[in-house]
Design a protein around this nucleic acid. Sequence first.
DNA 1: ACACTGACCACTG
DNA 2: CCAGTGGCCAGTG
Length: 112
Amino acid sequence: MLQNKDFFQDVYAVVRLIPEGRVTSYGAIANYLGAKQGARMVGWAMNASHHLPDVPAHRVVNRIGLLSGKHHFEGPSQMAELLQNEGIVVIDNQIQHFQKVFWDPALELGLP
DNA sequence: ACACTGACCACTG
DNA sequence: CCAGTGGCCAGTG
């Protein structure tokens, strides 16, 4: 079944490392993990992370800083509120100053 | 067993 | 610059 369960684990591990007030993208995580699985699997991993505690999925957005996954949260604006609660400005599902708050694991953690 | 979909991304034309 | 296409893996109808 989930032979690449390690991949999911790694995704969660990286997501957990995202500092407050910062965000990253699915592709960035996939890239950090080697991009062998593809960014789509990261999204799928997030979907599976629904039941997990310390996985701030709201800090993971698509490459352009759009809250593509907000629909999967409890409320329609749950994701945006969580982000804004951390000081991130979100307007119309779009993170403002995305380049500033963007947190690239490959860059911050260093390329393995 | 087949086809389509999905919280995506990069590359062409 | 915008639109289209392929690719990755797993789950569902």
